[in-house]
Design a protein around this nucleic acid. Sequence first.
DNA 1: GTTGAAAATTACGTTTACGTAAGCGTCGTA
DNA 2: TACGACGCTTACGTAAACGTAATTTTCAAC
Lengths: 153, 153
Amino acid sequence: MAMQSQAEQYSNTCTPVPVKGDQDEQMRIGEMAAEFGVTLRTLRFYEDRGLISPMRDGATRLYTRRDRARLRLVLLGRKVGFSLREVKKLLDLYDPHGTNIRQMRVALDKSERQLARLRQQRAALDDAIDELSGLTENIRSELEARLAVRTAD
Amino acid sequence: MAMQSQAEQYSNTCTPVPVKGDQDEQMRIGEMAAEFGVTLRTLRFYEDRGLISPMRDGATRLYTRRDRARLRLVLLGRKVGFSLREVKKLLDLYDPHGTNIRQMRVALDKSERQLARLRQQRAALDDAIDELSGLTENIRSELEARLAVRTAD
DNA sequence: GTTGAAAATTACGTTTACGTAAGCGTCGTA
DNA sequence: TACGACGCTTACGTAAACGTAATTTTCAAC
């Protein structure tokens, strides 16, 4: 009970895990969302954009280990600043039956470019921070000066 | 001729500067845009949002020194990450007949908050950069490994 | 049989800062 | 007087990533 996972808590609420000990640990959208800290809307949106393609049990989505791996990559890509479109292009290059050397070259290239962009952003951000902190100090001292004058009245 | 400014070149094209040596160095939208490195659309957009309010000569906008000062502030605000709406709120607080202590307090507060946001962004960005550079290196070495295997065939 | 939780679909709304026509007026010069 | 440069207004488009209804369906439990 002590180390009970969030996912288990979730399913214990009411719904028994879909055949506990299932062959591929399939989960439904709610559990998936909880595990990754995203909303249901997000998962459906990603599916709409072709980033994940869970199987269906009727109308209900079922996510497998592969889907979780995909989602992890998507979220990683987003974290490092790729757009979903770029992430999709990269993922779509993956060939489960090939060496994926082509894909890796592309990924490497894109990563390096993105890294350059991020560093540029960082430079701009540093610039803005410098400017703003200077500005802040100016305002602060100017304000103090004016308050001093008022006090002296 | 050597140190001729872009603005002068611009007006020399065809239009004489509006009464060269005018009392307030008014300029039209084209010259203004050139001087600040923004598009005409941007200036009209800012006006639409109430950030600048140039006078008119008929339908033609005329920008004075004050307008240029305002625009400088707008661009500065944007550079440090304020939205145009926030910039406007700050500028609207300015009272040419008061001490503007109230405005300065608000500005100081907003600046400090924004500074905090920027620093947070920088932390996130640093995080992303670390993650991505690690990822990049992994891809690079993995790719080299696979290429080595192919060569060994 | 009904209720409640979870899930599904459809589709419009949001945010920011302009871009991009389309169509028309104005001015000075060749 | 016609042309080119410049300017004006109106208004839809864009990009990204979901949010937010609104309504309906499914399913297991009581």
